[in-house]
């Protein structure tokens, strides 16, 4: 059993998610393109880990493979010490949920908020639908008056709150965040980041976040994995990032480019 023991922050809590030797290739033969190249990482329970990199570095591909939207991968994914089956089952989705990047695309245009939130409850056989819906709407800062709204009546921030509510209503343990604020304005981004932070504390959640925005990732996560060309080239704590302690030249370049504009030489 190869769970890499060297946890950067030395957190000794139980492991929520362990990904080992994940390889994902698109296409075959001469046109084959390695999107994810031997990636391994672990997430302790209650931890927030961020994968960061530029477009095409494979960070979103990892998320899609984790949730089973892409089943063509090699390597093992363990959730709570059990290897997850390639065909994800209900039990998996009951405990692992995801929030998508674009709240304008991730909500069904013809479904009322009420219906969006009731559906996961129905699928997983929960009781007390109405109370749970009211409760989660309050938890994401919307309130029960939003029950009968349609997505097109909501602002971007409100939609993302509904998407977060949908993911959390069945009380999962691990929440995957795919650039949850990159489609939003900065002030709305602040709202959503605050909400995510506060929900994580209140509900004892584990986060795996993917983003291209270093400031956003280090704000929310304690640990960051820098990705480039399908590999995690460096794992750092948020403290390291803030202090600019990076070993790899690429990471240093990325750090520097993320702190505003200085003419490239």
């Amino acid at each position: 059993m190869s769970a890499p023991a060297a946890n950067a922050t030395g957190a000794a809590q139980e492991t929520a998610l362990a990904v080992s030797h994940l390889n994902i290739t698109f296409g075959s033969g001469a046109a084959a393109m390695t999107a994810v190249d031997d990636v391994s990482f672990t997430l302790g329970h209650g931890e927030a880990f961020g994968l960061i990199g530029e477009s095409g570095c494979g960070k979103s591909t990892i998320l899609r493979a984790l949730v089973g939207l892409n089943r063509d991968y090699e390597g093992t994914i363990r959730f709570r010490d059990t290897v997850v089956p390639r065909q994800r089952d209900k039990n998996f989705f009951r405990r692992v949920q995801m929030v998508f990047q674009d709240p304008y695309a991730s909500l069904h245009p013809r479904k009322m908020v009420q219906y969006v939130l009731a559906e996961p409850l129905r699928i997983h056989g929960f009781d007390r639908h109405q109370e749970r819906i009211d409760e989660i709407l309050s938890a994401v800062g919307l309130g029960p008056s939003f029950r009968y709204r349609f997505p097109h009546e909501l602002s971007g921030g409100q939609r993302q709150r509904v998407a977060i509510a949908r993911a959390l209503i069945i009380e999962p343990e691990l929440l995957l965040l795919d650039e949850p604020t990159s489609a939003l304005d900065v002030s709305v981004q602040a709202e959503i980041l605050n909400l995510l932070k506060q929900l994580r504390r209140a509900r004892d959640l584990t986060y795996l976040m993917v983003s291209h925005d270093l400031a956003v990732v280090t704000h929310l996560c304690e640990r960051v994995g820098m990705m480039s060309e399908g590999r995690i080239i460096e794992e750092m704590s948020a403290e390291d990032v803030r202090a600019g302690r990076a070993a790899e030249p690429y990471t240093r370049e990325f750090l520097e480019a993320s702190t505003g504009y200085r003419p490239a030489s």
């Binding site: 900065v186 400031a215 993320s258």
Partner: peptide, 9 residues
Amino acid sequence: SLPRLDRAT
């Protein structure tokens, strides 16, 4: 409202 890289908030 911007998350900052220079210090933790």
